[in-house]
C-alpha cells in the first residue's frame, strides 16, 4: 500500500533522466519534490520534456536513471503495472492535452461512470455521482451523447468529470486551457481554485503565461537542454524576463504585468 501520511511529500524526484530508445534524453537530472496541496506549473519551450515529466508522474513512463518516489514508495515499472497501478491511478488523475484520445466510451454517461463502476458502488450511487458531477460541470444535457461528437470545450469538461469523479488527491493536467474559449477558461480557473481549497494537489504543464499566476503558486521552468532552469514562486519567475527569454519561452517583447 502507498503510505499517504509519510510527511507531506507526495512526489520526490531525484536525478531523473528519461529518453526514448536511441534518442536524445528528453529529461536530464530532474530533481524536485511536490508537497500535498501545492499548485505547480511546469513551464518550458516546446519539446523541453514537460509532457514526458507529467507522464512519469502519472505512472505511464518510468525513468531510465534516477528515482521517483510517490506517496513514499519507489515507482518501479514491473511491480507498478502488476500490483499498484489501480490504487495509484485512483489517487493520481491525469488529463491529456488532447481530450479526444481520453474519451473511449460510447456515451458521456458511460465515460464518467467508467471509474466509479469499478469501485464496487451500487448503480444508484454511481448514477447519483454522475448526475452531481455533471450538474457541477454544466454538462447534464450531454449525458446521452457520443463523446466523439462534442466540441473541444465539452470534451475537456467530460474528461475532467471522468477523472474528478474518482476523487483523486492529485490532478495532473497537460495544457489545461487547450481548446477552451475564454468563458470556459475562466470557469476552469474557478473550478481549479475550488479544488485547491479542498486540499487537492494540482500540477499543470502549460505555455499560457497569463493563466499560470491564477492557477499555481510555484513554477518549475525547463530549459531547452531538458534540465530544470528554475524552481520559483510563480510571480517571482514571471518577473525574470531574461531567464524566460534565455530558455526560449518568450521573446524580447515580453513584459510581465501583475
Amino acid at each position: 500500500m502507498f503510505d499517504d501520511n509519510k510527511k507531506d511529500i507526495l512526489f520526490s524526484l531525484s536525478d531523473v533522466t528519461f529518453g526514448y530508445a536511441d534518442g536524445e534524453p528528453v529529461l536530464k537530472h530532474v530533481q524536485f519534490s511536490v508537497c500535498r496541496g501545492e499548485r505547480i506549473s511546469i513551464l518550458g519551450a516546446n519539446g523541453c520534456g514537460k509532457s514526458t515529466l507529467l507522464k512519469i508522474l502519472a505512472g505511464l513512463l518510468f525513468p531510465l536513471q534516477g528515482e521517483v518516489l510517490a506517496f513514499g514508495r519507489k515507482l518501479d515499472r514491473k511491480k507498478f503495472a502488476d500490483t499498484y497501478a489501480k490504487e495509484y491511478h485512483s489517487k493520481v488523475g491525469y488529463i491529456f492535452q488532447d481530450s479526444d484520445v481520453q474519451l473511449f466510451c460510447s456515451t458521456v454517461y458511460e465515460e464518467i461512470a467508467f471509474g466509479p463502476m469499478q469501485l464496487g458502488l451500487s448503480k444508484e450511487d454511481v448514477s447519483k455521482r454522475v448526475n452531481d458531477i455533471c450538474t457541477m460541470m454544466g454538462i447534464m444535457h450531454l449525458l446521452d451523447k457520443t463523446p466523439y461528437k462534442l466540441s473541444g470545450g465539452e470534451k475537456k469538461k467530460v474528461a475532467l468529470a471522468s477523472v474528478l469523479i474518482l476523487q483523486p488527491d492529485i490532478l495532473i493536467m497537460d495544457e489545461p486551457t487547450n481548446d477552451l474559449d475564454p468563458r470556459t477558461q475562466s470557469w476552469l480557473v474557478r473550478l481549479l481554485d475550488t479544488l485547491h481549497r479542498t486540499g487537492k494537489t494540482l500540477i499543470f504543464a502549460t505555455h499560457n503565461l497569463d493563466l499560470i499566476a491564477q492557477i499555481s503558486d510555484r513554477a518549475i521552468l525547463f530549459d531547452e537542454n531538458h534540465m530544470i532552469a528554475a524552481d520559483l514562486p510563480v510571480r517571482e519567475l514571471l518577473c525574470k524576463e531574461d531567464l524566460l527569454i534565455r530558455v526560449n519561452l518568450v521573446d524580447e517583447n515580453y513584459t510581465y504585468a501583475d
Partner: peptide, 22 residues
Amino acid sequence: TKYISLPDWMTEPAIRAPAQPS
C-alpha cells in the same frame, strides 16, 4: 461565487480500490 459548489461526496474521504493485479 468565486468558487464552484462541489457535491458533498467530493469533499468526503475518497473510496479507494485495494492493490490488486492488473
